[in-house]
Amino acid sequence: MELALTIITGFMVIGAIYAIHAKDLLSAVIACGIVGYGLVICFLLLKAPDLAIVQIVVDTMSLIIMVTVVLNTSREEPYYGLDSRGRTLAVAALALIIALLYYFVISTGHLDAFGESHLRMSEAYMNGAAEKTGSANLVTGVVFDFRGYDTLGEATVLVTAVLGVIAILRLKGKK
C-alpha cells in the first residue's frame, strides 16, 4: 500500500519536474496531466472514490483549457540563458526550499504516522451521520448537510469565476 503510493507519487514528481523544464509548452501541459491523473490513482488507493471521480473530471477540463490556450498562442519556449537575475532567483528558491525543509522536518514529529490517523473532530460528524443526514455516503453527508453553507459559498465562487472569465475574454484590448 505504502509502496504503491510511493511509486505513483514518484511518477508524479518526475512528471512535475519534466513539466517545468520542457522546451515545448504542449508537452509541459501534457506532463502536468501526469500529475493530475496520478492524483486520481492516489485517491483511489487512499479510499476516496468521490475525490477520484471529481478529480478525473476537473483534471480533464483543466487539461483541455490549457491545451486550447497553448495551441491558440505559441508552443515553443525559447531557451533563456542563465543570466545574473535568473541565477539570483534560483539561489533564492533553493534557500526558501531549504528553510521549508527545516520546518517540514520539525512538523513531521507532530503528524500521525501514515495510516494511523486519529479521528479528532470528525467523530462528531461520523457518529450516526447516516441516520442524521439520510445519506449512506459520509462524504456527501458532510459536504451537503453539515457543511452546506460552505458548499453554497463554493458554488458562488464558481459563478464568480465564470463571470470573470466572460468579462476578461469579451473585453476589447486597447490598440
Binding site: L51, S62, G141, R147, E154, V157
Partner: peptide, 20 residues
C-alpha cells in the same frame, strides 16, 4: 471523511482558479 469533504470543495475551486 472530513478531509475528503474539504478537498472535494478545494478541487472545484482549483478548476475555477485555473480557468480564470
Amino acid at each position: 471523511p472530513l478531509p475528503q469533504a474539504l478537498v472535494l470543495t478545494a478541487i472545484v475551486i482549483g478548476l475555477a482558479t485555473t480557468s480564470l
